[in-house]
């Protein structure tokens, strides 16, 4: 009886989780490559958003997203199930974005971050009326290492732990970078303080 109950306990999650990420990945590893399409369908929206917010260039979104999923496809059979699939997926996405930024040699736009006051040295035109657009431009002006944790937290809703795994750093670093990103964003948006805040 006890064994029967245990057996039921074991089987139930398997049935319920047939279409979760891990199950899909297992089926993919077992040879059912059609499950990869389900993974793409499930996560491509978030991947595309991260790319877009990171690069602030919608023309690059599809190409970078394709590279992301291609990389995932090639390496999915080596997935170790030690973390969430999304964590690995976002890390791959961010790395692809970083690679792209490196390639187009825009690394120079990143301003060295000082511990005390952070002067980003850029501003938004006061004529901008679209608040969302203003905010996106402000976010885009943030350094990559601040912007990505901020986006992963405020846009994608990841926990500090997940963000730390995605960008491969400590949770304290994530916490610090998110705060600094917000501080930087607030400074950029100061001219619109009366309208935004």
């Amino acid at each position: 009886m006890k064994n029967k109950k245990k057996k039921t306990d074991v089987q139930l999650p398997q049935i319920l989780n047939l279409d979760d990420d891990f199950s899909l990945i297992k089926r993919f590893i077992d040879g059912d490559e059609s499950t990869f399409n389900l993974l793409v369908l499930r996560h491509k929206e978030k991947v595309r958003n991260i790319i877009y917010l990171t690069l602030n260039n919608h023309e690059l979104v599809d190409d970078i997203a394709q590279e992301v999923f291609l990389t995932v496809y090639k390496n999915l059979k080596r997935f170790r199930f030690e973390s969430q699939f999304t964590t690995w997926l976002y890390r791959v996405t961010i790395n692809k974005c970083k690679d792209h930024l490196r390639k187009i040699k825009i690394r120079s736009i990143f301003t060295p971050i000082k511990d005390e006051e952070e002067d980003f040295g850029y501003s938004i035109s006061p004529d901008e009326k679209d608040i969302a657009e203003i905010v996106r431009k402000a976010i885009d002006q943030l350094p990559e290492k601040l912007k990505i944790p901020l986006l992963l937290k405020d846009i994608e809703g990841l926990s500090y732990q997940e963000i730390a795994e995605s960008i491969q750093c400590e949770i304290g670093t994530v916490k610090s970078r998110i705060f600094r990103a917000r501080e930087g964003l607030r400074n950029i948006l100061k001219p619109y303080e009366s309208e935004l805040m």
Partner: peptide, 17 residues
């Protein structure tokens, strides 16, 4: 900080696929 978070969260714009 709450205001900035709210602004950041509301700035999402879906990218046409």
């Amino acid at each position: 900080l709450k205001k900035v978070k709210k602004l950041t969260s509301s700035s999402v714009k879906s990218v046409p696929e």
